[in-house]
Every structure is written in structure tokens, then in C-alpha cells.
């Protein structure tokens, strides 16, 4: 089946079995290896991408289902300005807070966190951390103990609000 989709803003087309996993289309056919495979069964979140803006596990999406749809991977998070890449708030915050160690979970965390920062009101209140933990419960990290990841998402949400407050 010829599957035409938009990946990180660019039109792409692949000729694949519609039952092939989106994860394999991204990593093998499109050579976008930022998206990782941890468990291959929806448990770990290492393969998280945005499908039409919603956070999903790419290991549980059939290629045929992506025809005509938009996919954003970790490679598509950073923006461009003045000829250089500008990290997404969550990428900058993960770096600043030390929210990554071995890095296998990091692309999925970054994509999921980008959705959280875009879609969920994460304040600076005491409930914010609990909220972030609930929303990131589908992203398993065996290294960091999550503390610094949660710090990073809360900080990214703050950076976003500050950015929006300024003209």
C-alpha cells in the first residue's frame, strides 16, 4: 500500500504493508531513528510520537492508519530561527535540569512532554508535579528516578507561560 503522510512538516510517501508498525516505518523506511523501541507493546513510551497532534505509541499504530495523517517525532520538536536549530522548551529544560541519563527514554519523554506543555495547564502549584507524573505515567525511565524529568517538564511549562506573557 502506498502510504502518504506528513512527517515533521514534510510530505513523505512509503510503499509498505498497511499492517507494518509506524515505529518500523519511521526507523527503517524513513531512517528517523530518534524514536526508540523499548518494549514493543505499549508499556514503556520510548516510541511516543504525535499522531494528528495526539501522543501515541508508534509500536501500536499500523502504517495504513497513518495515510493522510500528520506525525511528529522527536526530530521535529526543535524549531529553526536565524539559520540555526532552536530547542523546544522541553528539550532545553531536560538539558538544564539533567533530566536524561542513558537517553533511551528521552525522545519519548520529550515528545510526550511537548504535548503536555501544549495541551495541559501545568501551573506552579503543588498539584502540578502530581499532574505531570500522572500524564507521564506511560513513559518508563530506568535511570533518573523521574525527579529531574518532572522538574524539567514543570520548568518547560513555566518557560512557555513566561514566553506567552511577553509580547
Amino acid at each position: 500500500m502506498k502510504v502518504s503522510l506528513e512527517v515533521n512538516g514534510a510530505a513523505r510517501a512509503v510503499d509498505v504493508d498497511p499492517w507494518r508498525r509506524l515505529l518500523d516505518v519511521l526507523r527503517e523506511d524513513l531512517r528517523l531513528t530518534g524514536t526508540k523501541e523499548g518494549c514493543g507493546e505499549g508499556e514503556c513510551g520510548a516510541c511516543t510520537v504525535l499522531l494528528d497532534g495526539a501522543p501515541v505509541n508508534a509500536c501500536l499504530v499500523a502504517a495504513g492508519q497513518c495515510h493522510g495523517r500528520k506525525v511528529t517525532t522527536v526530530e521535529g520538536l526543535a524549531g529553526h530561527a536565524d539559520g540555526g536549530a532552536v530547542l523546544h522548551e522541553v528539550q532545553a529544560a531536560l538539558l538544564a535540569c539533567g533530566g536524561a541519563q542513558c537517553g533511551i527514554c528521552t525522545p519519548g519523554i520529550a515528545v510526550c512532554a511537548s504535548w503536555i506543555v501544549d495541551a495541559e495547564p501545568i501551573g506552579a502549584d503543588a498539584g502540578a508535579r502530581a499532574r505531570v507524573r500522572e500524564l507521564l505515567a506511560g513513559n518508563i525511565c530506568r535511570c533518573t528516578g523521574y525527579q529531574l524529568i518532572v522538574d524539567a517538564v514543570v520548568e518547560a511549562a513555566q518557560a512557555r507561560r513566561a514566553g506567552e506573557g511577553e509580547p
Binding site: 504493508d17 498497511p18 499492517w19 508498525r21 514493543g40 507493546e41 505499549g42 494528528d52 505509541n57 509500536c59 501500536l60 499504530v61 499500523a62 495504513g64 492508519q65
Partner: peptide, 26 residues
């Protein structure tokens, strides 16, 4: 019938591919 695939794709690597799918997602 295939919808969100969160049940069907979990076992996909262990099973032969289906003959075909009627995709009702969205």
C-alpha cells in the same frame, strides 16, 4: 475491524498478519 489498535497491535509481532483490516479509527 481495527480501531485504536492498542489491543490488536500488541500481539501483532507474535501472530500472522490479518488477511485485511477495516480501519474505523477516527
Amino acid at each position: 475491524v481495527l480501531c485504536g489498535a492498542t489491543d490488536l497491535m500488541v500481539e501483532a509481532p507474535l501472530r500472522p498478519a490479518p488477511v485485511g483490516v477495516v480501519d474505523v479509527w477516527a
